[in-house]
Design a protein around this nucleic acid. Structure first.
Length: 125
DNA sequence: AGCCTGACTTTGT
DNA sequence: GACAAAGCCAGGC
């Protein structure tokens, strides 16, 4: 069954936008409190794999996504708060992480590997 | 329809 | 070990 494309009359409201952004938001939302994840890990889980950049890009949309995405729990592979500059205010990311009992020093997460939450592993259980 | 950008990651010098 | 460049994919203009 094939659906005929009309001009613009039907489809009063798009049910869902097909964006891998949404997938990223969803995964990030799964991140437990007090845990952190990396762009690359999420990217691999989504299948994008080689393009961790897109994960960060998706975060840009996260500001308009609901429920809000805890982007502050997502850092780069080094455990550094690379995306903190995109928060409002930038110090918000560090503040939120500290609130989660996550130790942040010099924009870097202490014991990052211990707090690291890998969706590939955790969601694969 | 094509070019540029981007919150990363990996590899090579 | 530090720095530089390339690879990657999708969205915005």
């Amino acid at each position: 069954m094939q659906k005929k494309k009309s001009t613009h009359s039907d489809l009063p409201s798009p049910p869902k936008e097909y964006s891998f952004f949404k997938d990223v938001h969803e995964v990030v939302r799964q991140i437990p409190k007090g845990r952190v994840s990396s762009y690359g890990a999420i990217a691999r889980y989504l299948g994008t794999g080689l393009s961790a950049r897109m994960v960060g890009w998706a975060m840009n949309a996260a500001h308009n996504t609901s429920p809000p995405v805890p982007a502050h729990r997502v850092v780069n592979r080094n455990g550094m708060l690379t995306g903190k500059a995109h928060f409002t205010p930038p110090s918000l990311m560090e503040a939120l992480l500290k609130k989660e009992k996550v130790i942040v020093k010099e924009d870097k997460i202490i014991d990052f590997e211990k707090l690291f939450w890998d969706p590939i592993i955790e969601l694969s259980l």
